[in-house]
Design a binder for these strands. Structure first.
Lengths: 127, 127
DNA sequence: CGGCATCCCCCAGGATACTG
DNA sequence: CAGTATCCTGGGGGATGCCG
């Protein structure tokens, strides 16, 4: 938004709010984006399929997040010229690479359900 | 909030909004939580150190997110009985495990700065 | 079916200030 | 220095409706 040209890529840092790196990171580090990347996996899914597979996401957020991922080159969008419309989504190579590490977080979550639950009980017990 | 007892761990699914897995995942899948985990790394840092290392985070969000991570058993909190107060934060074993994959996302971001920038230019060019 | 625009509400989260 | 509490605003995000 503000004009801030000629930024040296070397000083791009995730922890600098005004850096490109931080901005890209922030756009990905939210549950809907990560879930979409995870659910897409290696598949090619159409809009409605994603919508049904990702419980709780609104029509609007799905569209919006998919646009964002497409713009950042994580998702390819294929529009079939037919009625009714059919639009397919697929992870790009870069998207696939991200998916690999996102799956790590998903896996971690599933493996630590009990750990977290126990920690919460302990924490809540001591106020 | 709603009483939903006796949930079979087997049907815990990240994509079910009312599942424990989704709730835990959602609490972690946001930029501040991930950045804190990343910045903490293997170090032991006090509140102020975190605050200065993570540009842009407010006092309130840092406290709040640290509490959340502590409650979920990702962060250990050490309060030194002294004046002025000194509070140290350190990743638990579970936190370290998560950090490994979070670093993957951070690394991915840094490696794909150019890719994303180019994709954005292409996207914006075609409207 | 999928996209986009509109309306609108709620709360995430920033700013500020007071304690121990 | 660290934590908690209060206030207040912006925009995230849901609901709805209309197009191609």
């Amino acid at each position: 938004m503000t004009d801030r040209p000629m930024r040296d890529p070397a000083d791009e840092d995730l922890t600098r709010v005004d850096s490109l790196a931080h901005e890209i990171f922030a756009g990905i580090a939210n549950k809907w984006a990560l879930l979409i990347v995870n659910v897409l996996g290696k598949d090619t899914l159409r809009f409605t399929e994603l919508h049904t597979r990702i419980d709780g996401i609104s029509h609007k957020m799905l569209t919006q997040t998919l646009r964002h991922l497409e713009r950042d080159g994580l998702v390819d969008r294929f529009v079939h010229a037919q009625i009714p419309p059919r639009v397919d989504y697929h992870l790009t190579t870069a998207g696939q690479e991200l998916r690999a590490t996102v799956n790590g977080i998903c896996g971690w979550t599933r493996r630590h359900l009990d750990h977290v639950e126990a920690a919460r009980n302990r924490f809540d017990a001591g106020q």
